[in-house]
Computed example of a mutant assay.
Amino acid sequence: MSLLCASPSSSHHLVVIPPTTTRRLTVNYSTRPRLSMSLDKNNSNTNSSSLLSAVTNLLWGRSLPPGLLVTTVRTAWNSTWHLMMSQLAPSDPTGGYSRPASKFRFSGPPPPNGLHLYVGLPCPWAHRTLIVRALKGLEDAVPVSVASPGNDGSWEFKRVGMNTGRVINPSLDKANGCKTLKEVYRLRSGGYDGRSTVPMLWNKDSKDVICNESYDIIQIFNSGLNGLARNPELDLSPPQLKDKIEEWYQVIYPNVNNGVYR
């Protein structure tokens, strides 16, 4: 009887071995890295090191020491994380999240035209501006540009899918054509070198930041643009409920909105 075996040169060819040349085939497993584990608690550190060495050899051979691999990955991840958080979620000296006060606050009647909203989908404060904008029916009156976190932790603009109907995806800057949100902030009169945050309400006519505090923005959307809203009769902050709303706000704001960064 002839035997069939896979040819070493190609997995798509078969080699026929005549009966007269049939011999016993053996595989030398000693050349492959072995994984071994021991239940001896006294040798747990040694076994962990051996296991890591074996996995490293399987993936990269003996060219990269496991200790160096772990240190390199840990350092890279730590540096990347701190770089992103320095922009998106700055911390105090103890490492706790510390949200700086918003630079641009607003009170009073907003301009009736030229409004543009900048948001980022990972930002919970941006979420509520989008929610109130939708509930009040201000999608046409207040266009939106959606930024994405960049490699350095800042906000940048890039198209990911299409914004159609109720679907909102990261987009290009529709108001100013900038590459990053920092560029948008710097367009304002006098420039700006502080943190470039979302949400941010922009005035296209005056080329200036109206507000970058979400609480102020939702107040503007709720009661300041009823002449442009499809649902002007909807009041999300009725006078008889203001005290209760403020009470819940003091619970939700630090524990939910700020809590995602802790």
Rank of each mutant, 00 (worst) to 15 (best):
S44Q: 05
G153Q: 02
R62N: 15
N231K: 07
I252M: 13
T46Y: 02
C178G: 05
G61M: 14
S223Y: 03
L236R: 05
K182G: 13
A101G: 12
C178I: 05
D205V: 08
N151I: 08
N45G: 04
I210E: 07
P8N: 12
K136H: 02
P8E: 12
K136L: 00
N222E: 03
A141D: 00
R32Y: 14
W81A: 01
S49D: 10
M200I: 04
L35G: 04
P19I: 13
Y185F: 15
F221G: 01
W202D: 00
R24C: 14
L234Y: 03
M37F: 09
S171C: 03
V132G: 00
V256C: 11
I245G: 05
N28R: 15
S36V: 15
N78Y: 01
K207Q: 05
E233A: 11
N163M: 01
P239L: 09
Q250M: 12
P239A: 10
L59C: 13
G224L: 00
Q87L: 03
I17Y: 08
A101P: 12
I17K: 12
L241S: 10
N222S: 04
L117G: 04
I168Y: 06
V167Q: 06
M162N: 08
R188L: 01
A101C: 07
P66F: 06
S86F: 09
K242P: 09
D152F: 00
V70H: 10
L25N: 04
L117K: 06
S148I: 03
S11F: 13
S91Q: 13
C5M: 14
G227W: 03
K179R: 14
L14D: 12
T21C: 10
L121E: 09
F104H: 15
S237G: 06
S171M: 05
M1H: 00
S10N: 14
A76K: 09
K136W: 01
T56G: 12
S223L: 02
G224Y: 02
Y261F: 15
S11Y: 13
Y29A: 15
K182P: 07
L59K: 13
L25P: 10
I252V: 14
S49G: 09
I168H: 05
S154D: 00
P65N: 08
P19E: 13
F221E: 02
Y118K: 08
Y253P: 01
P232Y: 03
C123D: 10
S53P: 02
G194I: 08
D208P: 00
S154C: 02
N257K: 13
L25Y: 11
C211N: 09
C123E: 05
R262I: 13
D235P: 05
L69W: 12
N169W: 11
N176V: 08
W202G: 01
V184L: 11
R186G: 14
G165E: 01
G120N: 07
W155V: 01
